[in-house]
Design a protein around this nucleic acid. Structure first.
Lengths: 333, 333
DNA sequence: TACAGCGATTGAATCGTTTCAGTCGTTGCC
DNA sequence: GGCAACGACTGAAACGATTCAATCGCTGTA
């Protein structure tokens, strides 16, 4: 049904090699011939079969990107950074969503390997090093995004989340808050651990301050809303409990804000201050604009691709750690 | 370097056909043999080469999805619906972003054809029918998403945007607003046209009501913020101009809200009511929760894939038009 | 005239899988 | 004992592009 390079060759009265050259090294072909071939190509509606090309060439021209949650604007921004840099390099990006689930993550990696992607960028859910090591042995390098590669020999671009968590908590403490509540999860997610650890460190510096933890199942707005409702349900207790929330990310922060606002019983920031994480665009547009820890999102994506290219060039692996930045808005009083 | 089915066959002491059968029709192979083959497979770290498979089989197992803007939560939600339904069918989804640009859209379609995707789901920027017709002739069907296919013979899933626009404007009129301002663009985008047309129709029903148009370059928050600033800049004029905004989508609405709020000169909804479109999750969490026109986002995605499957089965094309739903929140007073 | 040198073109080999007609060895039945 | 039927397995052909050594025709030079 679909025309092949052989059909094109026949119609243009040249050999298949020439057709291929017209497509891939136009300089090698006489102008008149090229013209005839091009004419044949669109007479026949020929479109190159990428599978055949890849098979012969031995590799594809795409790279795989696995993110924790495509619906989180943080990751679409990262993806955007990756894509822009990749396009400049003639690579296309396959975007996959693990939804914070290890099984989906593994499945996506397996698919990427079948597709023989050039390399993989991943924001991992769980311990994927063994699988990635396998990929690397078979010639597919990878780079961690939004997560420090602690094992030597692996590249990564990340933000110092411990510091980010500390900055968030210190800011709240500086504003006089003493009963902090960390809302985030799943707790085995590294980013969450680090941010929590940072917050703990900051709280430990202040005598009468404390930090409780309200774990949630995922870093989504819905989970945040649920958490907000639980905070509301504490009712009068609240004042003996928490006067500030350090959220695992902005989605959680937005959710909590929405959740506690429902009955209007709790005022933000008067009764409850909130600090988010990521500084997605929506944070500034929130009911009460959210104070947040900004990460250079697109830049992380672009850098990650950069590191991947370095690996493909046989260069040394390296870890880039970017610094987060506190952006103060109304939600922290 | 990478092991092939031939290597596996050699190591397991069977023929390549048998290896293939172990992979694809396990029922056809004796248990003992299968076991030996499987052992060889992971001794060698064999991973099937998808390009070769595709080449032989003649088609891939993915479908392409082209959206106007991946950073718009509306589209990630649609994508989610598509993916879920696709996964159930054993298909994977290639997500591409046209960024509301015709050239990028065309480039993505071309790439999808090279990959021999099974079919294409597209939220079109411009008139792509000729290109899609070409694809169809060569065996790749497509379905419009979030856009009615007005030409007979084409499938689509859309929401009645004229009605949505009308509902938005009627709601504002019912609340006593009379000087409406439509903020949206690009104006040649069908969704924008329809929503505007609907708003116009509603305004035409009311004697002393009027509708101005403030065109913007794209349906993003940044554009909305810029529009908001321009509204602010009108200053005192404002009251003789507009007392309500019908936004092209929620991102614009959020942006406008943020833009006019900057100096606090204009209060929402007192001075300026705002109605958005899409009802993305962030609309409810906004500074002033945004009244919006809800579209069944995930459902649209799932239905679109459904229609694509129907086409692949040789069934008739059809157009599904869903009804939007007004969700009233604080921003409209 | 012969020949080197050059650009343009050729076409067979190749990539790794799936497919399918055919072989092989057993079993069961008459 | 002969034969059909059956399950398991084989291996060559095919998919459609790219590659590269070889060939072809010319031109300009010795």
């Amino acid at each position: 049904m679909a025309a092949s390079v052989r059909d094109v060759a026949a119609r243009a009265g040249v050999s298949v090699g020439t057709v291929s050259n017209v497509l891939n090294s136009p300089g090698k072909v006489a102008a008149a011939t090229a013209e005839r071939v091009l004419a044949a190509i669109d007479d026949l509606g020929f479109v190159r079969n990428d599978a055949a090309r890849q098979l012969r060439v031995g590799r594809s021209s795409s790279i795989g990107l696995v993110v924790l949650d495509v619906r989180n604007p943080f990751f679409t921004d990262v993806a955007r950074g990756v894509e822009e840099r990749a396009a400049a390099e003639g690579l296309s990006v396959l975007l996959a969503n693990s939804d914070e689930r290890g099984d989906r993550e593994a499945a996506h990696l397996a698919l990427f390997e079948e597709q023989r992607v050039r390399g993989i960028l991943i924001s991992p859910v769980e311990e994927v090093l063994p699988q990635l090591q396998g990929l690397r042995n078979r010639g597919i390098p990878s780079v961690f995004v939004d997560r420090l590669a602690s094992t030597p020999g692996w590249s990564s671009v990340s933000v110092d989340d411990v510091r980010g968590g500390r900055d968030a908590a210190e800011h709240l403490l500086a504003r006089g808050r003493r009963r902090l509540l960390f809302v985030g999860g799943p707790l085995d997610l590294r980013q969450v651990q680090d941010r929590l650890e940072g917050a703990r460190a900051a709280v430990a510096q202040v005598e009468e301050a404390r930090l409780d933890v309200l774990p949630v199942a995922g870093l989504t707005m819905a989970q945040g809303v649920a958490a907000g409702r639980r905070i509301l349900a504490l009712g009068a207790d609240l004042h003996t409990r928490s006067d500030a929330v350090v959220a695992g990310n902005d989605l959680i922060a937005l959710g909590v804000l929405q959740g506690v606002a429902i009955n209007g019983g709790i005022r933000v920031p008067e009764d409850l201050a909130i600090v988010g994480y990521d500084d997605i665009d929506f944070a500034a547009a929130a009911a009460v604009p959210i104070t947040s820890i900004r990460q250079p999102r697109e830049r992380m994506g672009a850098l990650a691709l950069e590191l991947l290219l370095e690996q493909l060039d046989g260069k040394e692996s390296r870890q880039i750690v970017l610094q987060p930045e506190l952006v103060v808005r109304a939600s922290s009083g």
